[in-house]
Simulated scan of single mutants.
Amino acid sequence: MKTKTLELKHWILPLLLGVILLFANCEREPLVEEELNVSNTEEEDVITKEKKKYLEEKGYDLINIDIDIIDIDWCSIVPNLSGYYYANDGGHYYVRHINNKIYWFGEHPSGIWANVFTGTISGKTITGDFYDVPKGRIAGSGSLTLRVGCFGSGFTKVSGNNFGGSVWTKAILPTNLPRPRSAGFGVRNDFNDITGKWIGNDGGHYYIRQIGNRVIWFGEHSFTSGRPAWANIAWGSRFYSQLWLDWIDVPKGNTNSAGGILRGFVEEPNYISLGHNTGGFGGSKLWR
């Protein structure tokens, strides 16, 4: 009798577990569908807003016209691509598009990686280079080629084997963005290598990467309501102690400067002075 009871328990327990999992999956499926619908709705809302903005710039009277009946081949148009994008690598990307230039700062909320991209757009193709900066822990770099989606709805990666993301989707900027953190890599007390985290006399946190004579940074300052007051990238070269950089704001922050030039000097291993700045750049001293 005991043997039969034990055999019965061996059959009942797996059966009960299977029923529980079945109901759990049944409960989960609507939630997954709902999450996907929210994501799709968000994407559609962003693109609709961009279409309205484009038509207003072209002089259309949107009060009396339904954009859905306007005969336009939207997929043939590449609008200004500036804005926030999320990607299938889990990253936040803050993109700036000026003339035929594309810039971004990308970061993973966990802090595992952060990168700066500078490139050129021709038609619907973007080509350029990315450089990891020490707001993350990975120190990579390489080239990327991207294809712009229908009416700037996002990008897809055409080439770039050492870059994780492959699909970017334009979306609404989240309310809470990743805050400043300690450097994920870098050095101190090294006059010949300025890679690391620096603090400016403007209160900014600057994550600088030096590769040979190439210099790239991401800077941000003063979070309010989950977003920095300003955020910028800089890129350029180092010649001995001199820094020759260009900079531009990216839309992680609230400012929207078209940027300018920066000229600096590595005065000491952990001290940089900045001068002859244009475009409204405020900082003049950085300490590591």
Rank of each mutant, 00 (worst) to 15 (best):
S166D: 09
I72K: 12
L144S: 01
N270K: 06
F117C: 03
D132L: 13
N162Y: 11
L173I: 12
K4W: 14
L286E: 06
W230A: 07
I98V: 14
E27D: 12
V46M: 02
T120P: 00
T118N: 04
S141H: 10
D89A: 10
Y93C: 07
M1R: 13
V215Q: 02
C150Y: 13
D202C: 02
P269L: 11
H97Y: 12
L286V: 08
P174E: 02
R179C: 03
G186V: 00
A139I: 13
G283E: 02
I112L: 13
G186E: 01
P109D: 08
I233D: 00
I216A: 01
S143V: 01
G260V: 06
G90S: 09
I112V: 15
Y240P: 05
S182C: 05
K51W: 02
S153H: 03
T195W: 00
W11R: 05
A229T: 07
L286C: 05
E56A: 13
L6H: 09
G142H: 07
P251F: 00
R188P: 11
P109S: 04
N162I: 11
K52M: 06
G90R: 11
D202K: 07
Y86S: 14
V116C: 07
R263H: 14
S257Y: 04
N254E: 14
N88M: 08
S284K: 08
Q210R: 14
F185M: 06
D129M: 09
S39C: 05
G283R: 02
T125S: 09
T3Y: 15
V266D: 01
I65L: 14
Y271G: 05
V215H: 00
S257V: 01
V46T: 03
K285R: 12
R288Q: 15
G106D: 02
G123D: 07
L173W: 03
W287H: 11
F163H: 14
I126W: 00
L15Q: 06
K101C: 01
F163C: 07
V148Y: 02
K252V: 00
Y85W: 15
G160C: 03
K135Y: 11
I138L: 08
F239G: 05
A24K: 12
V32D: 13
N201W: 03
L55A: 05
Y86P: 08
F151H: 05
N254F: 05
R188H: 12
N277A: 14
T41H: 12
D89L: 12
K285E: 15
G111F: 06
A229Y: 09
G128C: 04
F155T: 10
W244E: 12
G200I: 04
K51D: 02
N189F: 04
T195R: 01
N192S: 15
S222V: 10
G203D: 01
D66Q: 12
M1I: 06
F281I: 02
E220G: 00
Y85I: 01
L22F: 15
N256Q: 04
P269M: 05
G164H: 05
G184W: 02
A171V: 09
R227S: 06
C150V: 11
S166E: 13
L36M: 10
L31P: 02
I69R: 04
R188S: 15
R179Q: 03
E267F: 12
